[in-house]
Design a protein around this nucleic acid. Structure first.
Lengths: 130, 130
DNA sequence: CGGTATCCTCATTGATACTG
DNA sequence: CAGTATCAATGAGGATACCG
C-alpha cells in the first residue's frame, strides 16, 4: 500500500521539517486535528486492544464518554477512513466498529502517546520530573 | 518517594491496556490533553528541529499562531516541564525557549504524528488546496 | 524583542431525554 | 442495542492593541 512512489531521495525528517516550516501544509497539525479530539485516541486504543466492538460496548470501555460524543467521534473517525462501521444482520441487530487498515496504522502513534504518558505523567507516583 | 512498592513484570502493552480500561487514569488521555492543544505538537516539533528559539522566532516558524496563543502554549508547556524558559541577559535581552529532557522525549510522539500524517494525509491525494 | 490585556466568536462537551 | 435531538456551559483560538 502507500503507493505514492513519486518521492525519493529526501530523508523523512527532512521532509517533515520542511513541511511544517510555515505556510505549507503541516502533517503534524493535520494529524493532531484528526486524532487529537480528546476521545479519539482512546477509542482507537480500545479498538486496537479489543478488536471490533459494538457501540455500547465501546461506551463502557471508554468511561465517561457520552453517547453523543462517542457517536460523533465514531462518525468523524469513519469519515476519515479510520474506522469501519458494519451492521451485523443478526438478531439482535448489532453494529460493529473496527479499525480500517489506516486506523490500525495509528497504533504507533497511540502507543507512543500512551507510553510517554505512562512514563512521564504517572499520577500516583511522585512528582513530575524536573 | 520510592513508595511504589512491588513493580511486577507486566508487559507494557498490558499495563496500558489496563490503565485505559475505565475508571482508571488513562495515559493516553492525559498525554493527549497535554500536547493535544493544536499548536503544542508543532511548537515542540519546531523546538526539536531548531533547538532553542526566541519568542518571535518561534512565532515566525509556527505560521499563523498569534502571540497570545503562543504565549499561552509556551506557558502551559513550561508548567508541565516540557520546555525551559531562559532569559538571556545580553543586549538586547532575549528569551530562549528550549526543550527539557522530558520535552525532548516527546520526539517519538511528535515524529509518529508527523510521519503518520505524512503518509496518510498528504493533501495532494485529497485535492485540498488554497 | 517579548510579552499582556481585552473582547469576541466558534467549536466541543456534557447532561438529559427520547426513538427505532 | 444504537443512536439522535436539544440546550446550556466551557473554553480554546483569533484579532487587535498596548506595555516594558
Amino acid at each position: 500500500m502507500g503507493g505514492q512512489g513519486a518521492l525519493r531521495h529526501v530523508s523523512k525528517s527532512e521532509r517533515l521539517s520542511v513541511e511544517c516550516a510555515g505556510g505549507d501544509w503541516c502533517p503534524i497539525t493535520a494529524t493532531a486535528t484528526l486524532i487529537g479530539k480528546k476521545w479519539h485516541p482512546v477509542i482507537i486504543h480500545r479498538l486496537l486492544e479489543n478488536g471490533a466492538s459494538g457501540f455500547n460496548e465501546l461506551q463502557n470501555e471508554v468511561d465517561g464518554i457520552s453517547s453523543k460524543v462517542l457517536s460523533e467521534s465514531l462518525d468523524d473517525l469513519e469519515a476519515n477512513g479510520l474506522v469501519d462501521r458494519t451492521v451485523v444482520e443478526e438478531k439482535p441487530v448489532r453494529v460493529s466498529y473496527s479499525l480500517t487498515d489506516s486506523g490500525e496504522s495509528l497504533e504507533r502513534v497511540v502507543l507512543a502517546l500512551a507510553e510517554w504518558g505512562d512514563e512521564h505523567l504517572e499520577p500516583a507516583c511522585d512528582g513530575v520530573s524536573v
